[in-house]
Design a binder for these strands. Structure first.
Length: 109
DNA sequence: TACAAGCAATAGT
DNA sequence: ACTATTGCTTGTA
């Protein structure tokens, strides 16, 4: 199903693309960056993820500093993969799934 | 075009 | 832990 990205999705991808390697942001921050008060909309856009690994969707976590979701689920093997990806970039999470160093949070300018 | 249902969340109770 | 709310996408008529 080849579907053209909507303007909203493009905005979300552009925002996420700004997140440097080794840093993470939250759905709420991304939502604020694109001017949308609903973080769930960001999650919906990321879940589609038409531009595959080009857009670092794994660098987006929840506002509560939990790891959030990945590949359509909030827990399971996919989440483990997300944690591994972030760990490879220097971002660590506790066994509870919480961010170890909140200083790694990236804020949009 | 219009309406209903769902979502990788968040805040409040 | 549970419920309410949020804006956007998708499917169906």
């Amino acid at each position: 199903m080849t579907r053209s990205p909507t303007s909203f999705e493009l905005r979300v991808y552009e925002a996420i693309r700004q997140i440097p390697r080794g840093r993470v942001s939250t759905y709420a921050e991304v939502a604020r960056a694109v001017g949308v008060p609903a973080p769930r909309a960001v999650g919906q856009a990321l879940r589609r993820n038409p531009f595959a690994p080009q857009v670092p969707c794994h660098r987006v976590i929840a506002s509560t500093l939990t790891i959030g979701g990945f590949a359509g689920t909030t827990r399971g093997a996919e989440i483990e993969r997300k944690r591994a990806l972030l760990h490879r970039e220097g971002v660590e999470f506790t066994g509870d799934g919480h961010l170890v160093e909140p200083t790694r949070l990236y804020r949009f300018s």
